[in-house]
Design a protein around this nucleic acid. Structure first.
Lengths: 237, 237
DNA sequence: GGGCTAAGAATTGCCAACAATCTTTGATCT
DNA sequence: AGATCAAAGATTGTTGGCAATTCTTAGCCC
């Protein structure tokens, strides 16, 4: 029986790995497309792959279900979600309500350290993109938005944005038109500039446009639903 | 040892009660102030009170923790949250970003059945208030907002609003100035009227003002942190 | 051959017991 | 008396196993 190697990227969790570690590993695996949407995440398989008991995995899967990254069907198991067109639009609709105003607040509150953190983050992004690690690039690109929300010092809104960004990353990984050339991220740089200048109105407008660009950069045509079963996914590795 | 009677309102769950039922019972108990903020929700106590095993209770408590209605401290247990001033403001800030625009969408999409459902809901609200069941009144008043979000047909945003409304209900129950006279809900009626007329702009404006009124109706002065322990809470019943 | 039924296998749901951790209580020392 | 420390008690964290449900497969009938 082929062992699934979910943990290649996460250097096998040491003993005492809590459910949160497992959830984090699975989260990254889903976002990096190491496990394709629709794949079933068997409790025992995941447990064996990560070296933890089924209970821990159960809890981690429940966490991911709360984040809408997996769906749990009673007595059937957990499956990686496959966001459809409607869901994609809804998520970007929600982001459009939250993020522009939050970016404005962030720009008005940002101190030097904040801006410098963001710039460091941008270089990480471009490095990942230069190396061609598109999984990491998508992830970092999302975390940029989370970081902006944190600067706005609104942890409730920041958490919502974090959740939306996670799901957006999955959507981008699924539907992005040009798999090679990621979002050029000029928007991110412009946003940091606006924040450095303390120009809230400009930051708000940049963010609004950026979100529109992101959504319109997707190809939301209905896909043939590859419907990969667990076997196919594991064989592929 | 006094048995806690959390289940008085929920007619003791039948066998096969899933974790979601327990979560729902606890949710209502927290919102109706049957269990005060700060109280510890022991897994075994809750399990005994509701006639289910500890595993089910554990799962339910995790769910509530994801909703920020309880806090789980490792190896220490789950405690009902006590929202502070900052959290209250943050939550209404988030609602102000989401709900006005959502109310506009709802007004523009609402069909006759939607409006009629809302009117029925309003009568339930006033009945609960007339009877003096303030716990139920607060709950229904919150559900009104959720229902509006559902009419907007944006389930992602509706879920966020639902989560925010739950926490708001707890905040209102904690900090409302006049415990007797609840929000007169003229705003709710006006909102339904605007929706019936299909006037999105008016609905948006009413919702915006309503949220401001709600927040300014709170007395957010720091409280002495009664810090009720489990014993005190159970003795009181 | 296609479709239906039933037995078997595999997986999740749940519970009870054990282990780990924290809190409390009581004694001891300064 | 107050503080410190240790052991007992209580609660959560985790594991393994059994029961319940679902999916698969083999067999049968039309």
């Amino acid at each position: 029986m082929a062992r699934p190697n979910l943990s290649t990227a996460s250097r096998r969790l040491e003993a005492g790995a809590s459910a949160e570690s497992v959830a984090d590993t699975l989260r990254r695996a889903v976002l990096a497309h190491r496990v394709a949407p629709g794949v079933k995440l068997s409790e025992e398989e995941v447990g064996n792959a990560l070296g933890v008991g089924r209970t821990i995995v159960r809890e981690a899967l429940r966490t991911l279900a709360h984040e809408h990254l997996v769906e749990i069907h009673r007595n059937r198991g957990a499956f990686v979600v496959r966001p459809d067109k409607r869901e994609a639009i809804e998520i970007f609709e929600a982001r459009s309500l939250l993020e522009p105003r939050t970016a404005r607040s962030a720009a008005e509150r940002a101190v030097y350290a904040d801006v410098s953190d963001l710039r460091r983050h941008l270089t990480e992004e471009s490095e990942a993109m230069a190396v061609g690690d598109s999984g990491r690039a998508v992830y970092l690109s999302g975390q940029f938005h989370v970081q902006v929300a944190r600067i706005a010092n609104q942890i409730t809104i920041a958490r919502f944005i974090e959740s939306l960004v996670l799901r957006s990353s999955l959507i981008v990984a699924l539907y992005w038109r040009r798999p090679s050339a990621m979002c050029e991220c000029h928007a991110h740089e412009a946003l940091v500039d606006a924040m450095a200048a303390g120009d809230g109105a400009r930051a708000e407008e940049i963010m609004r446009g950026h979100l529109v660009d992101l959504l319109s950069g997707l190809d939301l045509a209905e896909r043939p639903r590859s419907d990969v079963s667990l076997a196919a996914a594991l064989k592929g590795l």
